[in-house]
Design a binder for these strands. Structure first.
Length: 269
DNA sequence: GATCTATGTAGAT
DNA sequence: TCTACCTAGATCG
């Protein structure tokens, strides 16, 4: 379940579980076997995330660069270690914990410099203290592309995925197809600030919850609706269902091969 | 058991 | 704009 909050959450838990100790690294599936052999037994220095990218720093031995893609996932366990189930690309075994990685779009050993290059190609990440929202704004305000597309462009903004994009646009009443160069600076400031808050909450909870207290099931009496992604949302994957605010059916279309959801009334602009 | 879907990205057309 | 791809779980029959 990979938007930026997932990767930052993983970096945090893996830092707690493995940092500072030697780890056993293996690739039961075999597709990371040569790299795992190089890393096996070395000290896991640090886990860190930038956008949807996760990095395991092994110092001079190298850095593992992981991108989960659409369906990559980690499972975390306490010892004892059990036999691999399914296609385990990478297994890490530490002092008391172990974790399995399955289905990543990327799992590769890179140098520190290469890791830095990957990060240099990404836009600011709302989950990082060092993020500069003006870098994203400079791209957005010069572009005729729909804001909904710009929000998913990782070179503009790093870490935002399909759920956060739909939800943050809804929360600010912004039409998703509004061209970047038609976005008001104060709108951008509000969107950024909201992403910082929402995604930070996502890191803490492990879910994407975007519904404000006044529209929450407890306040309105409607049945809670947890999406498969685990959280309570306004429009994501609610095509045809009544908008939680105005009851207008939620719209849906494909945009650049991704599902886009919005309320045509609340986000009329 | 077969088929479909998914919070993503890269590369071809 | 389209297609391929990494994998598992949900859904269909």
């Amino acid at each position: 379940m990979p938007e930026g909050h997932t990767l930052h959450r993983l970096a945090g838990s893996q830092q707690r579980d493995f940092a500072g100790g030697a780890v056993e690294v293996s690739s039961p599936q075999g597709r990371f076997a040569a790299e795992a052999e190089l890393l096996d037994g070395h000290v896991f220095r640090e886990a860190w995330a930038y956008g949807k990218h996760l990095f395991h720093d092994y110092g001079p031995v190298g850095t593992v660069h992981i991108h989960l893609g659409l369906y990559g996932s980690f499972t975390a366990h306490g010892k004892p270690v059990t036999d691999p189930v399914g296609k385990v690309r990478m297994r890490l075994v530490g002092e008391s914990c172990w974790t399995d990685l399955r289905g990543p779009i990327r799992c590769e050993l890179v140098t520190t410099a290469e890791a830095a290059e990957i990060v240099a190609g990404l836009g600011p990440d709302p989950l990082r203290d060092d993020a500069d929202p003006d870098r994203a704004w400079n791209r957005i305000t010069r572009s005729r592309t729909a804001l909904a597309s710009l929000l998913l462009d990782q070179t503009v903004l790093a870490g935002v995925g399909n759920v956060y994009r739909a939800e943050v646009l809804f929360r600010h009443g912004v039409p998703p197809l509004l061209p970047g160069n038609a976005v008001e600076p104060e709108t951008w400031r509000a969107l950024w600030a909201d992403l910082v808050g929402l995604m930070g909450e996502g890191v803490r909870s492990g879910r994407i919850d975007t519904v404000r207290a006044e529209h929450a099931p407890e306040a309105t009496g409607r049945a809670p609706r947890r999406d498969r992604h685990g959280g309570e949302v306004y429009v994501y994957r609610r095509a045809g269902a009544p908008c939680l605010v105005c009851a207008t059916p939620v719209e849906h279309r494909r945009l650049a091969n991704r599902h886009l959801y919005w309320c045509p009334r609340c986000q009329a602009g």
